Amino acid sequence: MDTMSNDSPIRTDPGKRGWVHAALARLEQESARSADTHLLRLDFPGFPGIAFYFKDEASHPTGSLKHRLARSLYLYALCNGRLDEGQTVVDASSGSTAISEAWFARLLGLPFIAVMPACTAPQKIHAVQALGGQCDLVEDPAQVHARAARHAAEGACHLDQFGLAERATDWRGNNNIAESIIGQMCREAQHEPTWIVCGAGTGGTSATIGRYLRYRRLDTRLCVAEPTGSGYVHGWRSRSREAVASQPTVIEGIGRPRVEPGFLFAVVDAVVEVDDAASIAAATQLETLLDSRYGGSSGTNFAACLTLATRMRAAGERGSIVSLLCDRGKRYSDTLFDATWRRDHGLDIAPWQTAIATALERGELVAPD
């Protein structure tokens, strides 16, 4: 069998499946080299008896929790016979998934096209291009799926994160974020989390966590943190797969305008809506607390954690809340973390910054007037 390194091309053997076997071996090598991500604990004076944990998915080689998903999507495509040597790979993505998919495409020696809304953060576009990927920018974000399907019709392998995320990942284990969280929590005082909090981009993460909690017969509840008025929010409440968003969001990666195929409502116990300004303010607070910058969806998660903790404290509950740090904040230096950009988008985060700082001291998150 060939010995492979990151820089050497994948060489095929005479067998029909030679390239596929070599590609699978390379993905297995990559997985074995990747250490698990850190689980960080924070305690706040306003919430005695409630421990906060944040799983740092931004520490993956491609800088986000989508590294796990991208690996799973490539494995799924290879094992289902949809991806062959030299074939172009395509997917619709606002950035983080595309960056991870471009990284794996380079690892396997494959061309990659990311179909992205033209309004995607420039840092994300540049990251895909730096990895050798091509960005097909679409003015109307609602058309990214159709554009990706057009590339697929021309012979590309469509990884289809939105259509396949909830089935591409093995929710019983193996590259499973829920399994990792529960394993890391087993030696903590509150080893069975009261809540796990995540967003809903493709629906894959929430589906995986929700299924795994049931599979392990755990009482841990799952909360989806979403931008106010997202498609998921309305779909979860009405159980309608025809639901659409009632307002847009600037928080990339979550807050989908429609109900995606991977959204499983029944495995989610609660949904917390978070204003965009609150998400950004919470992300700035995370930077202060952890001395590292994370993206807007991490802020959305943190704000939802504080909402749940407020409810727990009011009810006299103790326990732990686990959430995700989704991606690196430097990707949003020109947008969410830029004061001029926020002003141009009518986002005043100062009141929410005060509200969040107060909540950490007093144990109650109150929305500013």
Rank of each mutant, 00 (worst) to 15 (best):
M4Y: 10
N6S: 13
P9F: 06
R11M: 06
D13R: 13
D13T: 15
P14F: 10
R17Y: 14
V20A: 04
L24D: 03
F44I: 00
P45H: 09
A51M: 03
F52P: 06
L65T: 06
K66I: 13
K66Y: 13
A70F: 02
L73A: 11
Y76E: 01
G81T: 01
D84S: 11
D84I: 04
E85D: 15
V89E: 01
S93P: 14
I99W: 04
A102T: 11
A102F: 03
F104E: 04
A105E: 03
G109D: 05
I113A: 08
I113Q: 05
V115C: 10
T120G: 11
H126C: 15
A127N: 08
G132N: 07
G133D: 04
V138W: 06
D140P: 04
V144L: 03
R147S: 07
A149L: 08
H158P: 10
L164Q: 07
L164G: 01
E166V: 13
E166Q: 15
R167I: 15
A178I: 05
S180W: 00
C186D: 12
R187C: 05
E188C: 01
I196T: 07
A200W: 04
T208E: 09
Y215G: 15
Y215Q: 15
R216I: 08
R217W: 10
L218R: 12
D219F: 00
A225L: 14
A225C: 13
E226H: 10
P227W: 09
T228I: 15
T228G: 14
Y232V: 15
R239C: 12
T249W: 03
I251L: 05
R256Q: 09
P257I: 12
P261D: 04
L264F: 09
L264Y: 06
A266N: 13
V268Y: 11
V272N: 06
V272W: 05
E273P: 09
I280D: 03
L286I: 04
R293M: 12
G299A: 13
T307Y: 02
T310C: 11
R313F: 00
A315M: 14
G319R: 02
V322K: 08
S323F: 12
D327P: 14
R328M: 11
G329V: 06
S333N: 13
D344F: 01
H345Q: 01
H345C: 02
Q353Y: 02
A355P: 01
L360I: 01
V366S: 08
P368C: 08
